[in-house]
Computed example of a mutant assay.
Amino acid sequence: MPIPRLRTQAITDENALPDRVRKGRGAVSNRLSGRFDAPDRYESVDEWSQVDWGEDDEPQQVRTILGVDTARKIISYNQSPDVGFNRSINPYKGCEHGCIYCFARPTHAYLDLSPGLDFETRIFRKPDAAKLLRQELSHPKYVPGRLALGINTDAYQPTERTEKLTRALLEVLSEFNHPVHIVTKSALILRDLDLLAPMAARGLFSATLSITTLDRHLSRVMEPRAATPQKRLDTVRALKAAGIPISVLAAPMIPGLTDHELEAIVKAAAEAGAERVGYSLVRLPHEIRLLFEDWLRLNFPDRADKVLNHIRQCRDGKLNDAHFGSRMRGTGPFAELMAQRFALAIKRHGLDGPRPRIEPAPFKGGNPQMSLFSD
């Protein structure tokens, strides 16, 4: 029997499934197709549907379908002043974690797929990732620099358990003595301690655990397939015990929904052994604006208007600000107060010191090596 796949097409409102919470998924609809195809996309059900049906003939769960991304190069470069790296690798497109706020959701629009449920259920893997990386690192003109692994979508999302693309990439990076940093929500990173601890000992590896909330219920509906907050804190402890430089990112902070937890997250991170803590304000570019609002009104109708209004106060009256320098922290009194609260919190827990400078082992490609950390 052929592999079932999600049929998404422009159909009438009468035939569209209603917006609702799907088990284990973040987005409540598949309506938004993006900027590059038909304006209206709905989830429909037929003989090829992914939907599992319950006793009441209502969709209960949407299964994940894996596809192949035939990339020609694996390292992507950027010139953003808002991030601490100029190159990254993403072994997957789409992410099963299903975080409703994920800034990478709009990338599925380029694939003629929805940034909604499609982003969480149609995952594209890059099976030649390690081979491509070896080729690029072996090029005589390649000069190493701090590389971020899994920035758009989590390199340790659930499908990594079977695909092991992230592990294969780490094996190549370790062989070449190439510095790498990983930001993740997953405890699956502990699977690769046999690679990561020796790399950290050579000054080649550091990690960040993203913690959005300490509220397990909120986490389950906001980022349904990510590790629980407590599991992430336990992972911070385990990485610290393995000698790996570890930090925590309280991100994204959502005004009116999670921002009141900022100090508590900093405190929990410090107690778990984090050496540094950062934060960023929620970003809602392109299709995420309506996806987030639909999710918010369905799950938290009593506070939806308050949350949206607070976000607008931080974004000059809009729900998003794409400008470098302000997009990560926001502007205005509310954003400034959050920045002051954060500064006091990290000072209170001794996390406001300078970043240590670490000289990695020499790159084996023959070009000068750069420091994993800057001052």
Rank of each mutant, 00 (worst) to 15 (best):
L147T: 15
E275D: 10
L214H: 12
P198N: 05
T235P: 08
E120P: 14
F373A: 05
R161A: 15
R63F: 02
L66K: 13
C99N: 02
R72A: 01
L165C: 01
A238M: 05
R297S: 05
L188W: 07
F334H: 04
E14F: 09
L249G: 05
Q9N: 12
T12Q: 13
G317V: 07
G332D: 07
T121R: 14
I211H: 07
A345Q: 00
L239H: 10
R125F: 07
G26F: 03
I346N: 01
Y142H: 09
V248G: 01
I75R: 05
I211L: 12
S44L: 15
R202K: 13
S210L: 01
L351M: 02
V172L: 04
L6W: 08
E171V: 09
S88P: 02
K347P: 00
A130G: 03
L132E: 05
S76M: 00
N15G: 01
L233I: 06
L204S: 02
A148N: 09
I288C: 11
S247L: 09
P356E: 05
L218R: 13
M328E: 12
L284C: 05
A238K: 06
V282F: 03
F373C: 02
A241S: 08
F334K: 09
I358E: 04
I211K: 02
K185S: 06
F36C: 00
V307I: 07
E175P: 01
V83H: 01
S174N: 13
A274G: 08
A242C: 04
L117A: 08
H260D: 15
R20W: 07
L195D: 00
A197G: 09
A38K: 07
E14L: 12
R122S: 08
N152D: 15
I75E: 03
E43W: 13
R303I: 15
L262C: 04
S210E: 00
V143F: 07
R22A: 12
H181F: 12
L17I: 13
P224K: 12
Q230R: 14
T8W: 14
A270I: 03
L249T: 06
R5W: 11
S138T: 13
P229I: 05
L372K: 11
G203H: 10
A268M: 02
A270R: 12
G150V: 07
R289F: 00
P140T: 00
D118L: 03
E359F: 03
Y279T: 05
P158I: 03
A16W: 06
G54M: 05
P158H: 08
F85V: 11
M199R: 06
P245E: 10
R87C: 15
L137R: 05
R327P: 03
A335H: 03
T228N: 11
G34V: 04
N177V: 09
C95V: 07
R237Y: 01
E96Y: 13
E336I: 00
T159L: 11
L239F: 04
I189Y: 00
E171H: 09
S29Y: 09
I151Y: 12
R202G: 02
H139W: 14
T70R: 14
R35T: 04
I254F: 07
E287I: 05
P91R: 03
P356I: 10
S174I: 00
I244V: 14
R122M: 11
N78G: 14
N367V: 10
A104I: 11
V45I: 15
D128H: 15
